[in-house]
């Protein structure tokens, strides 16, 4: 589903040029969930934003569903992958009602006005259809993140890119959102790329985990490795020890 070869990202010019992602390669099969774990500044979010098409400083090759994508995406390419952001308080327009938030993707893509899809979309993420009338500030953090997930799914993408989707939420709410993501993955056969600093969340959700440090992948762990606490590099071991697992 996703094929990345020698992806490099650098910001800045001349002396201040900083290589954030150093020639990484990864591939994700359809229906698989890949986790990328690492500390702040390791480049994991940059990888995700390059996959989404938000960062245009990358070099290398990104293939989504078999087609290579350029730095500027076409509409069809944008339809393949949508993203859920970390902070549900800043990822939804504060002056749009929830119904407006949900129809915007449809109308932007010229796929009809989308009003009839608002109710089902809300119910699908476990919110009452009556929430369509509300403004984001009338919703809790967990409810907003559900809306953000519903919005990402409006265009029926095959890939969902998740950037720390629960790190702004309480543990109990995190559990609800993670369950929702698991259910949706099953119902729609979605492919996830989940970026997080929290090994527990990554371990719970992912089939395979890439450990990232200073712009490179230093370890790859399977679900079984996580269960038995097996690691193949010093850094992954440190990370494990520090996570109180």
């Amino acid at each position: 589903m996703i094929d990345v070869k020698d992806l490099s990202v650098a910001f800045g010019q001349g002396e201040a040029r900083k290589q954030v992602v150093k020639s990484v390669s990864l591939s994700v099969a359809k229906g698989e969930t890949l986790g990328i774990v690492g500390e702040s500044g390791c480049g994991k979010s940059t990888v995700l934003r390059s996959l989404a098409g938000l960062d245009r400083h990358w070099e290398g090759e990104i293939k989504l569903a078999g087609t290579a994508v350029a730095k500027t995406r076409t509409r069809e390419q944008l339809l393949l992958a949508q993203m859920v952001f970390q902070d549900p308080y800043s990822s939804i327009h504060p002056r749009h009602r929830i119904e407006r938030v949900l129809v915007e993707p449809m109308q932007s893509m010229k796929r009809g006005d989308g009003w009839d899809k608002v109710g089902p979309a809300l119910e699908q993420v476990g919110l009452p259809a009556a929430f369509a009338e509300r403004f984001p500030h009338e919703l809790s953090g967990g409810q907003r993140q559900r809306v953000a997930i519903a919005r990402a799914l409006m265009l029926e993408p095959e890939v969902l890119l998740l950037d720390e989707p629960t790190s702004a939420l309480d543990v109990s709410v995190q559990a609800e959102v993670l369950n929702l993501l698991s259910d949706l993955r099953e119902q729609r056969n979605l492919t996830y790329v989940l970026v997080s600093h929290d090994l527990a969340v990554i371990g719970h959700m992912c089939d395979r985990v890439l450990v990232m440090k200073d712009g490179s992948f230093v370890d790859e762990l399977t679900r079984d490795d996580l269960k038995h606490g097996r690691t193949h590099s010093d850094y992954a071991r440190e990370l494990f020890a520090a996570s109180y697992l």
């Binding site: 995190q174 559990a175 609800e176 369950n179 090994l199 990554i202 719970h204 996580l226 697992l245």
Partner: peptide
């Protein structure tokens, strides 16, 4: 108990997490 159960733990994988 709900708080503890809601935390994911890769060593004891579950399909769905318990919610409060």
């Amino acid at each position: 108990r709900g708080l503890i159960a809601a935390m994911p733990d890769p060593r004891n994988p579950v399909r769905r997490l318990q919610v409060l």
